[in-house]
Design a protein around this nucleic acid. Structure first.
Lengths: 119, 119
DNA sequence: CTAACATATGAACAATCAATCATATGTTTG
DNA sequence: CAAACATATGATTGATTGTTCATATGTTAG
């Protein structure tokens, strides 16, 4: 088969080799799940704000809270989510904890997302 | 002020000019909200699977459902979310509706996300 | 027109989540 | 050691979300 016929959804509209390609290049379920988890971390405006604040400099928790008009607790909870997703990293200095972006993927992803928005 | 002193959180740890820069380059609230909304759309493994399936070819709803082992209804609901986020676009052909990726940002964003995962 | 089919939609429910409040941990200062 | 401070954590709660089931819309074939 796979000649060019399009059988409607008695089973599949598309050619068999297309189906094969789709299934072949599809990553494992676990990867897909992890990827969704990553995007989920970006999917909250409070966390986006925190990341943007860290674009310029590392900041401590209470700075972020005051800059963005948020509770210390709320910021701390969200920083934990961002840390777990390896988007930010902490640096402890006495009783203060400074957070900064974990790597450049964060900037790149946010920039790409912004491009999509501005269209 | 803004000389180099670091006053701990009596008010701010960081220099005033850093605070100024942060606030200056921070996009408007609405943009930040929209950006979070965009990432939220990527933040579900079912939708990620659908997008991956559309990497190879445009597919109709029931194809996607069968390929991924999902209900027609579930796929339709999620395609609506993807369509609203302008990540996929429909092409109607008789009673069949074929969906395809809306633009290349989708590929780019997913690729960038995957890079972050694989580290 | 009617039956069959592909897709879309709406209501309902369980699960997930972000903010809040209260409190715990850990560090510095006196 | 005790008080003050920065941060983290745990429980609770209101809101959001993904799936399911039932049904509606719209198109094609007979």
């Amino acid at each position: 088969m796979d000649s060019g016929e399009i059988e409607r959804c008695g089973f599949l509209c598309v050619h068999e080799h297309t189906v094969a390609k789709v299934l072949e290049q599809m990553p494992e379920d676990e990867k897909l799940y992890d990827l969704a988890e990553l995007f989920k971390v970006f999917g909250d405006s409070t966390r986006i704000k925190i990341l943007y604040a860290l674009f310029e400099a590392e900041l401590c928790v209470c700075d972020i809270a005051q800059l963005l008009g948020l509770t210390q607790s709320a910021v701390s909870h969200q920083l934990r989510v961002l840390k777990t997703g390896r988007l930010v990293k902490p640096r402890k200095d006495g009783k203060t904890v400074f957070y900064s972006l974990a790597d450049d993927h964060v900037r790149t992803l946010i920039a790409q997302g912004m491009e999509h928005i501005n269209e």
